[in-house]
């Protein structure tokens, strides 16, 4: 990708840009979820990388990074997307990630952080009047993720699979 600016996105981060050369990347996406907004006409793109569904568990830790929670990050991402000129009517919302471990131990599957993240994100978007257009979620494999702002294209790599283009 000549002249592209690769920008790694750590957990608990929101990034938004209008620069078409920017490519947001996440090296190893497992239980966490990359949430992306993209304005198909104006080419404004934003991403949030969350790991946990709900911030209500945070017990007054002032130093905690609240953007690791879906319920904080989703409204914040929408706000920043709109501040950068992104319009709701042009938006494409996609989510990637949400893998989880096997549950061979039986009983209630408390290891389902990945799928709980997906549920909370979809519910939040619906509440805020947005629709999740595409989702590549679940399973138990690592995903390598790239989101190019020139086209809005998302590339997901997994071992022994053809690259998935969204």
């Amino acid at each position: 990708m000549p002249n592209k600016v690769m920008e790694p996105v750590p957990i608990g981060t929101i990034k938004v840009s209008k620069n078409p050369d920017v490519v947001y990347s996440i090296g190893n996406l497992t239980s966490g979820i990359a949430i992306t907004l993209y304005d198909l006409k104006l080419k404004v793109g934003g991403i949030a990388y969350i790991l946990l569904p709900e911030s209500s568990i945070e017990q007054g830790n002032r130093d905690a990074n609240m953007l690791k929670y879906a319920d904080v990050a989703v409204p914040e991402l929408i706000k920043k997307y709109q501040e950068n000129g992104g319009l709701k009517q042009n938006v494409l919302v996609r989510i990637v990630g949400g893998a989880q471990m096997f549950n061979f131990g039986g009983g209630a599957n408390s290891l389902n952080t990945g799928s709980r993240n997906v549920t909370v994100i979809k519910t939040l978007f619906t509440k805020l009047g947005f629709v999740v257009d595409k989702a590549e979620v679940g399973g138990n494999k690592t995903r390598q993720f790239k989101f190019s702002l020139s086209s809005g294209q998302i590339q997901v790599k997994q071992m022994d699979r053809e690259d998935l283009i969204m």
Binding site: I11, I26, G27, N28, L29, T30, S31, G32, L51, A99, Q100, M101, F102, N103, F104, G105, L111, T113, N140, K141, T142, Q158, M159, D160
Partner: peptide, 15 residues
Amino acid sequence: MVGSGVGSDGMMYSL
């Protein structure tokens, strides 16, 4: 779960 330096064996493990 965090994905830090995780390889292609991913999360194919159990607690």
